[in-house]
Design a protein around this nucleic acid. Structure first.
Lengths: 214, 214, 214, 214
DNA sequence: CATGAATGAGCTTTCATTCAT
DNA sequence: TATGAATGAAAGCTCATTCAT
């Protein structure tokens, strides 16, 4: 299954951010990730996790003392490390280019980010779903992601706007359109199986035109 | 509370589509709607529903024999009646206008639909969340919504494309961008409290430009 | 079993102090009391309680939301109501008698209190055992019982001491001997089944002599 | 901490009676003793024991195959060796003295025994608690302690009674008062921190007067 | 011998669902 | 029809015990 491959990769990202973890615990984490993504956190039982991970139910609780901690272990490194790295990497890529065009910026963002969305679809699904349900997670996310955008993306947008390369809307609205449009792909793959790759050029064009100055 | 009003109105929509329902059952339905939207279906107990509805727990089960049926009672009429009516109403509004511009179409859609999203935010949240978790609901949704779009929206898009008013992308992709962009407002209100009204002109412009022919 | 009868009576005392409780919940309370006394709180499972009470396991949790709350429901009314009433009743019995002799006082205390110990043996066993294990319960007990003794028993002792009827030891030590000696009966009945009644005269004499002035 | 010292000494008593034990196992035994005394046997986990002993959880099981065996290892030598030695030592001390007075006997018992109680408080606490909960331990205790008292204490009491030095109550009752009164000190130290030493003279006097012939 | 990750039986607790009143 | 106490299956979680290293 292609689905499987995605999860493996998404799992790598979380693993990498989680330090040294013994193999059985990795299986637990991987199984949780997959099941949470498929069925949602609340609909997943620790028994299912244990079965899919091929371990005893008690093993699930060795490292993560509650089911909530397991969710945190899946999401936290993603929010606090993977996501930030993604955003700052983008900034680094465009920061030294004073004559960046709107096209270049959007392409630079969209290509990387869409590949990222594809790879991390499962985690993103969990994240979005749980953010809409858990107040604590929501505020934690806002605290982390807000400043990151403000420091890395907004200055770039401002520069483009100053040079008449970008429509003069508030940064947060532009970000909303950019991120939102890319996430529609996540929804689309849920309803209609489709390769994200093919959508990339169209998405880039759509954003490029939609965000052009009047 | 504005939130309250929204739910009341969203509730009206479901109510209207549900035929004659005794008052206590209406309270149950309204309470379910609100709680499912806030906390998610799986995190809501029938006890909470009963409390918020001001009835006994047994009463919750008088009309709806299971909790799942309660979810269906909240969502089904929305999917099978409210949503279709919304789409067909749109079609009716533009069907007799052969020289419709892109601007007119998008404005016509966006204004109504954004008001609709605002009014029905809670139900839409439930719907999106549960669709991502329940295969049956997903296929049911595709069965209902797919043809509706194909019959009502796509012909209009095709006509506009033929007249060079609209970019030549597949209808499904154009629909993805239009619906997706509007739904980003739903996400935004979750993270940052904001009045949807204010966003309407910007969203319309974004879509209008983004979907213009090259 | 005589044991049974005791528990029934001890149970009455707790019941009386607990307000209106539906029959099944009373069975739960009675079963808990008996099992906690026999096996200790920590060695008693909620399954055992449910079985002995003849109810489903869920029923155990209807009124008492945790097992700890069940223990509190058994002990708290005893500590805060039964025990205080016992002590103040004693005070009322001797307060109007200025020429009370040591013999009269000890007899007055011992007879009532030993009957009380016999009746409430099971609860007392639970109380003593759990007090020795739970810091919170210990301080709660000291807070309640300490002042009661100080206000009701100690003044009587002081009066007797002033009239040369009682040995001149600290009140707390005299209380220790009086209460301790009576409680030895509780331990004795544990090791050797015996009717407390028969021991009363001997205990009274022992205390009377032991607490006589030099 | 004085508490610590007590446990160390109590531990010595058990150690001495336990033959050669490797150091890690001694730490396990000492940790068990302390934790069982503080929190009760049932509320103590093997993990806690391992931590306090500074060994791995598996090590706890090297010598003692079950947790129950660990309790036995703490209590059995105390019941079968320390306690007997205590009682027989007493007998040896008074057996050759035909004109022993009540005062001398009580003093002889009380002084040693109270020191003993102080030293072995933790073990005694465990013993008393577990005897009240475990039938097997109870009968084992009765089997061991009963005859010991009958053979070593009762003859002495009988001789004193014959010489009019002691009140004419059944030996078991006299023993109850003597042992019980001394144990009240154990309870007192639980509720009110106090040095047992100071109580010794008063306890001796109380017993001496209480057990005098009429 | 010591370790500590792993086990799984069994415990406490939750909650959708039923049903006598 | 409405009630809410009662149910019991199943969930989350604990912990004595085992065993490969």
């Amino acid at each position: 299954m292609a689905e499987e491959t995605n999860i493996q990769e998404a799992f790598q990202a979380v693993m990498a951010a989680n330090g040294d973890i013994p193999p059985k615990q990795q299986q637990v984490l991987a199984a949780s990730l997959e099941l949470f993504a498929q069925q949602g956190f609340a609909n997943t039982t620790t028994k299912q996790i244990a079965q899919k991970a091929g371990v005893a139910e008690g093993t699930v609780y060795r490292r993560y003392k509650t089911k909530d901690e397991l969710l945190a272990a899946v999401l936290a490194p993603f929010v606090t490390q993977v996501l930030p790295r993604l955003i700052t990497e983008f900034a680094e890529g465009v920061v030294g280019r004073p004559y960046l065009t709107r096209h270049e910026m959007i392409q630079s963002i969209a290509e990387d980010r869409l590949a990222f969305i594809q790879k991390n679809g499962p985690i993103l699904r969990i994240l979005i779903r749980e953010i809409s349900v858990r107040t604590d997670l929501r505020s934690q996310f806002i605290t982390h992601a807000g400043p990151l955008l403000q420091e890395n993306l907004f200055p770039v947008l401002d520069r483009l706007k100053a040079r008449g390369e970008l429509v003069d809307w508030p940064d947060s609205r532009i970000a909303q359109f950019m991120i939102g449009t890319m996430l529609t792909e996540l929804v689309r793959t849920l309803l209609v199986p489709e390769d994200i790759e093919k959508a990339i050029p169209t998405i880039i064009k759509f954003l490029e035109k939609g965000l052009a100055p009047d």
